[in-house]
């Protein structure tokens, strides 16, 4: 078992360095106008923030940390990540950012000075956010008190701390682009697909990854092992859900209350997702999520 893992790690390292080297010189094309909607609504944005899980990663609730001032450790096989301070504080947060900087971060995974972000920040999903949702989020972020505490530095071991290699990683695994509704499907289904594949980023935990941390698209929502904290996530494809007794009714209900068909109530990380995320959503959005998940033949 150990030898296999070691070999896999070596292979991963080799691919990683190759990919990074090959793509080092290729700059990222940044469109000049990344977002056309300029006016956002803070209250709607607060809702989008709940849906997107911003608070969970960027607020250290367990340690009594201030809202969005920096998050708890996220331990992965690539290192330990800390969600940075994203309050409007000027030196330490996003106080010097513009809406365009914000949109680029979410949609392209790059910082205002062009540095690529680690995919621990799930820009691969946030790239799907609509213009309005991005503008609303930005408006909501302005309402949060600015906290002058520096972001914790990431604790990433070599070679993953070589940020330039992320350009290569993104070439391989990142597909930017706003959500496109699927023609021929209902509004409910498309709303569900938007939420699941975009802001709620379910696949970040429920889709297995390769040794380089890229999601295995063919196995979307098939469940994953080796999550932070040695957790496993269950398969949430339509058939797998049905097998466990999930219906649109009890799934929408379960996302609000954490209740499961067998009488149990979720714990672990999903307990936190319900507590901090899905329990805050509207009935309609929870129904959309449930409808999509249970009617998702293509799993993408």
């Amino acid at each position: 078992m150990k030898r296999g893992l070691f070999a896999a790690a070596l292979a991963g390292l080799a691919i990683f360095l190759t990919a990074g080297t090959v793509f080092l010189s290729t700059g990222e094309t940044v469109p000049s106008e990344i977002i056309t909607v300029r006016e956002g609504d803070a209250e709607r944005g607060a809702y989008v923030a709940r849906m997107s899980g911003c608070i969970a990663c960027h607020t250290n609730e367990a340690a009594g940390g201030a809202l969005l001032a920096g998050g708890p450790p996220l331990q992965t096989q690539f290192g330990t990540f800390f969600g940075p301070n994203i309050t409007p504080d000027k030196p330490h947060g996003l106080g010097n950012w513009t809406l365009d900087d914000f949109a680029r971060a979410l949609r392209l995974g790059i910082s205002p000075n062009g540095k690529p972000y680690y995919p621990a920040f799930p820009f691969g999903f946030y790239t799907k956010l609509t213009d309005q949702d991005v503008a609303d989020l930005w408006a909501a972020f302005q309402t949060v008190p600015g906290i002058p505490s520096p972001s914790k530095p990431q604790e990433i071991s070599f070679p993953f701390n070589q940020r330039w290699t992320l350009r290569g990683w993104k070439r391989l695994f990142f597909n930017p682009g706003v959500f496109q509704p699927q023609p021929g499907e209902s509004d409910l289904w498309n709303r569900g697909k938007y939420i699941v594949t975009g802001p709620a980023h379910c696949g970040a935990c429920h889709t297995p990854r390769n040794p380089l941390g890229g999601r295995n698209a063919e196995q979307a929502l098939h469940g994953a092992g080796e999550l932070p904290g040695n957790e496993r996530s269950p398969q949430i494809t339509a058939e797998a859900l049905r097998e466990k007794g999930w219906t649109e009714t009890n799934l929408a209900f379960g996302l609000r209350f954490g209740t499961k068909p067998n009488g149990d109530v979720v714990g672990g990380s999903m307990g936190e997702v319900v507590r901090d995320g899905t329990s805050w959503l509207t009935d309609e959005d929870l129904e959309a999520i449930a409808h999509y998940l249970l009617n998702n033949p293509k799993q993408d």
């Binding site: 904290g229 954490g258 149990d264 979720v266 714990g267 672990g268 307990g271 319900v274």
Partner: peptide
């Protein structure tokens, strides 16, 4: 859920 999240094996 609070108890299962903090005190039950993942």
């Amino acid at each position: 859920s609070a108890c299962h999240t903090q005190f039950r094996k993942k």
